[in-house]
Design a binder for these strands. Structure first.
Length: 198
DNA sequence: TCATTAAAGTTAT
DNA sequence: ATAACTTTAATGA
C-alpha cells in the first residue's frame, strides 16, 4: 500500500525518525497509527521467552505496516523494529479511516495490500510446516524471487543475511548455513562473495 | 534431521 | 575496536 506523501500530510500525518534497533511499536500495545516507510528497513518480529527472534516480515521503502490491526480492536501481536536508519510517516487511526471513506479507490488498494500480506503469510506458514530445512529455505527464496523479473536460475541475489533467513524460517543459523552449502553442491544456489544467488 | 554449544574467522561500523 | 555475521565441529534429542 503506497499512499502519496502529500495526501498523508494533508490528512494530518507526521514524520518520525528511528535509529537501528529502535522499536516503532511493541507487541501487546494498542494500534493507533497507519505507518508508511519513506526510507529504511523495518522488521515485524517476535521474541520467544529465550530471546530467540522470529521475523514475521521485512519491509522497505514505500511499504506500509501496522494497518492490518487497525481494523480491529486488538493489541499488536508483534513488534515493529527499525533495522536501519528510518524515516517513517504515520497517520492516526481516525484520519486514516476518513481517508479510506473519502477515496474508495484507496480503500480498494488497501484491500489488495492486505490480501498480498495474507498471501505471504499463507505461503510462509506452509513453508515452515514443511519439516525440512532445504524446503523451507527454497520456499522463502522462491517467494522473494517472485517479486523479481528474471526467472532464470542464479539471477536473484537473496537480499538477506543467513541470520535473517534463519529467523524468517524458524531454523537456527548453523542449520541454515549448512543447508545452503549442500544446496550449493546440488547446484540449487550459487554463492559468490558470501551472497546467495537463486 | 536439526538444535545447541563452543570456538574461531570475517566483515561492517 | 567492537559488534554482528559466518563458519566448522562436537554432541545430543
Amino acid at each position: 500500500m503506497v499512499i502519496s506523501e502529500t495526501v498523508l500530510y494533508s490528512a494530518g500525518a507526521d514524520i518520525k525518525n528511528y535509529r537501528p534497533t529502535e522499536f516503532i511499536f511493541n507487541e501487546g500495545e494498542a494500534s493507533h497509527y497507519y505507518y508508511q516507510i519513506i526510507t529504511g528497513d523495518v522488521k515485524l518480529n517476535n521474541y520467544d521467552p529465550e530471546g530467540k527472534e522470529f521475523i514475521q516480515n521485512i519491509l522497505s521503502d514505500g511499504e506500509s505496516f501496522g494497518e492490518s490491526i487497525l481494523f480491529i480492536d486488538q493489541a499488536y501481536p508483534m513488534n515493529a523494529e527499525a533495522m536501519t536508519e528510518c524515516s517513517i510517516i504515520r497517520l492516526c487511526k481516525s484520519a486514516f479511516f476518513e481517508l479510506m471513506a473519502k477515496f474508495p479507490r484507496m480503500y480498494l488498494e488497501m484491500c489488495q495490500s492486505l490480501s498480498q500480506r495474507l498471501y505471504y503469510k499463507f505461503i510462509m506458514m506452509q513453508n515452515i510446516s514443511f519439516q525440512n530445512s532445504a524446503a523451507r529455505l527454497t520456499g522463502l527464496m522462491e517467494y522473494l524471487k517472485g517479486s523479481h523479473e528474471d526467472r532464470k536460475p542464479y539471477s536473484f541475489m537473496v537480499p538477506l543475511t543467513r541470520q535473517q533467513m534463519a529467523s524468517l524460517t524458524g531454523l537456527c543459523v548453523e542449520t541454515t548455513i549448512r543447508t545452503i552449502k549442500t544446496m550449493e553442491k546440488q547446484q540449487i544456489v550459487k554463492i559468490k562473495d558470501r551472497k546467495i544467488y537463486y
